[in-house]
Nucleic acid binder design. Structure first.
Lengths: 210, 210
DNA sequence: TAGATTGTTAATCGATTAACAATC
DNA sequence: TAGATTGTTAATCGATTAACAATC
């Protein structure tokens, strides 16, 4: 990666999308692509694609373009997808269960190793081979296990308290589905999946399309 | 709204967040706030807040600030949240079911009126009082009912085909959870909730935090 | 070698921030 | 009125696009 210049979050948010397109091309057995061809498929300018990729290194070759397999792998490495991640889900209601069941993650090296809830009716339930544990045991669990990612699927009122517990338990990333912003220590990565915000910008666009 | 200048999508994506903060303030019975006070709470600059809001009108008052209730209501109207939306869910697996169960939406005027799937084991299942219908009946259903929003919770391979059916059926918005980009007619609003992209940018940040 | 296409610098465009006159 | 704070213009900053020399 290009030494110590900070890479803008606009670029980073495009990386997973590049990877998806490269994966599709890979499946179609295409083995190389130029920035201009990719720009047609993805709707970015060729210039932007070259700029984006060059933040991380010169993956292309003049006169040839980019080798798809190599670029795909490189982006996977940049995104940290060549590693395994142990995750826990806090809040085992519908959304938590849906995420636990989303087995597609496994292929990518994401493994849900525990689920928690405070609701006695959910504790003990087994979702996709994972038993829902009592939330009171979370600190203990985090101490005993090396958890990488905590997924918050609680309501908004519990989100900050859960985030604090996860931080104390030294997760390195938090994926927050609660419709609320949470504060976390500087060294913890936080990604929000605010579905309600997403829905609300959909209605905005519905209303304001011609 | 300020006549016909196009409002940037950066602004629009901040609106639901403004609304959430205003809702919290409202619940705390605060009745006015200045852009500088809000800037502290939200982490935007006061200048940005005033710029953002002024895209839609002068909601504030010099020397006073913004009336929270009024601003909250105005943003709701701008986002189209003073209306009711009929939604259908296509793909009734775990994620589709989780969304169907997410009753919080009801309060906001979002109503799931049907669910669809091709899997015979899911057809007939009743989720939160909604019976999962055979996907083959979707066109018929869309003809007979005025559906505003189609929610795609299928796998990536079916997403485009579903989007086409929804478009033909004249939904005005599509909320796409499939990990794939879909193409839709110009007049249809599309919002992607690419959860895997979100997870992948989380791992990026985990890897690249000091 | 000639053609193609990158990597990279420079130019443009757009979004954010600062400043301040208007005004409640 | 004086103080506070907006609405809005101007300045800055950052991201995107264009251009082209480097090079495979």
């Amino acid at each position: 990666m290009k030494d110590h210049e900070k890479i803008s979050s606009a670029v980073i948010k495009r990386l997973p999308r590049y990877r998806r397109y490269l994966e599709d091309l890979l499946k179609k057995n295409v083995d190389r692509i130029s920035s201009s061809e990719l720009s047609i498929q993805m709707g970015y300018t060729a210039s932007q694609i070259r700029q984006d990729l060059n933040n991380f290194g010169g993956f292309g070759q003049q006169g040839y373009g980019y080798n798809i397999k190599e670029l795909y792998n490189q982006i996977g490495i940049i995104l940290g997808l060549n590693q395994e991640y142990k995750m826990i889900i806090v809040g085992s209601g519908n959304l938590g269960q849906a995420i636990a069941n989303y087995t597609h993650y496994y292929k990518e090296g994401f493994k849900v190793c525990a689920m928690f809830d405070i609701n006695p009716r959910l504790i003990g339930l087994v979702i996709n081979d994972i038993e829902v544990m009592d939330y009171n045991l979370i600190s203990e669990f985090l101490k005993a296990n090396n958890v990488d990612i905590g997924i918050i699927c609680t309501n908004k009122d519990s989100a900050q308290e859960v985030a604090d517990k996860l931080s104390e338990g030294n997760v390195s990333g938090i994926w927050n589905f609660a419709p609320m912003d949470i504060a976390v220590r500087e060294d913890i990565a936080l990604e929000n999946a605010h579905l309600s915000d997403s829905l609300h910008s959909l209605t905005y666009h519905m209303l304001h399309k011609k």
